[in-house]
Simulated scan of single mutants.
Amino acid sequence: MEKIKKSDSELIKLYKEGNEGAFECLLHRHKARVYTTVLLIVKDKYIAEDLLQEAFIKAVKTIKSGRYNEEGKFLPWITRIAHNLAIDYFRKEKRYPTVILEDGSKVFNTLEFAEDSFESAQIRKDTHAKLREMIQELPPAQKEVLIMRHYMDMSFQEIADNTNVSINTALGRMRYALINLRKKMNKHNIAYDQNIYPR
Rank of each mutant, 00 (worst) to 15 (best):
1 M>D: 08
1 M>G: 11
1 M>L: 09
7 S>N: 07
11 L>M: 15
12 I>L: 10
14 L>I: 02
17 E>W: 07
17 E>L: 12
17 E>V: 03
17 E>F: 03
21 G>W: 13
22 A>S: 15
24 E>K: 13
26 L>A: 04
29 R>D: 05
30 H>W: 08
32 A>Y: 05
32 A>E: 10
33 R>Y: 13
34 V>Y: 00
34 V>A: 10
34 V>P: 04
36 T>V: 08
38 V>Q: 00
40 L>K: 07
40 L>H: 03
41 I>S: 01
43 K>H: 04
43 K>T: 06
45 K>I: 04
46 Y>T: 15
46 Y>W: 08
47 I>G: 00
48 A>F: 00
49 E>K: 14
50 D>C: 04
51 L>D: 02
52 L>C: 08
52 L>A: 07
52 L>R: 04
54 E>G: 05
55 A>D: 02
55 A>G: 07
56 F>I: 15
57 I>D: 06
57 I>M: 14
57 I>K: 15
58 K>F: 07
59 A>F: 04
60 V>R: 12
61 K>W: 10
61 K>T: 11
61 K>H: 14
61 K>A: 14
62 T>K: 12
68 Y>T: 12
68 Y>P: 06
71 E>D: 15
72 G>F: 04
72 G>M: 05
72 G>E: 13
73 K>Q: 15
73 K>F: 13
74 F>G: 09
76 P>Q: 04
78 I>E: 00
79 T>M: 10
80 R>C: 07
81 I>Y: 02
82 A>W: 00
83 H>P: 01
84 N>C: 06
84 N>H: 05
85 L>F: 03
85 L>M: 06
90 F>S: 03
91 R>G: 02
91 R>Y: 08
93 E>N: 09
94 K>M: 08
95 R>Q: 07
96 Y>A: 08
97 P>D: 10
99 V>W: 01
101 L>T: 06
103 D>I: 04
103 D>K: 09
105 S>W: 03
105 S>V: 02
107 V>W: 00
107 V>L: 13
107 V>K: 01
111 L>A: 11
113 F>G: 08
114 A>W: 14
115 E>R: 11
116 D>P: 09
118 F>N: 15
120 S>H: 13
125 K>L: 14
126 D>V: 08
126 D>T: 14
126 D>N: 15
129 A>M: 14
130 K>C: 09
131 L>Y: 01
133 E>F: 09
134 M>R: 06
134 M>V: 05
135 I>T: 06
135 I>Y: 00
136 Q>N: 12
138 L>P: 00
139 P>N: 11
141 A>F: 07
141 A>L: 06
143 K>N: 13
144 E>Y: 00
145 V>K: 01
147 I>W: 01
148 M>L: 09
150 H>P: 01
152 M>Q: 04
152 M>F: 06
152 M>I: 05
152 M>V: 06
153 D>H: 09
154 M>Y: 00
155 S>V: 05
158 E>Y: 01
160 A>W: 02
160 A>N: 03
162 N>G: 13
162 N>C: 11
162 N>T: 12
166 S>P: 07
168 N>V: 13
169 T>N: 05
170 A>R: 01
170 A>G: 06
172 G>S: 11
174 M>D: 15
174 M>V: 07
174 M>H: 12
175 R>P: 03
176 Y>V: 09
183 K>I: 09
184 K>Y: 02
189 N>M: 03
191 A>Q: 12
192 Y>G: 03
194 Q>H: 11
196 I>A: 08
197 Y>K: 08
199 R>A: 12
199 R>S: 10
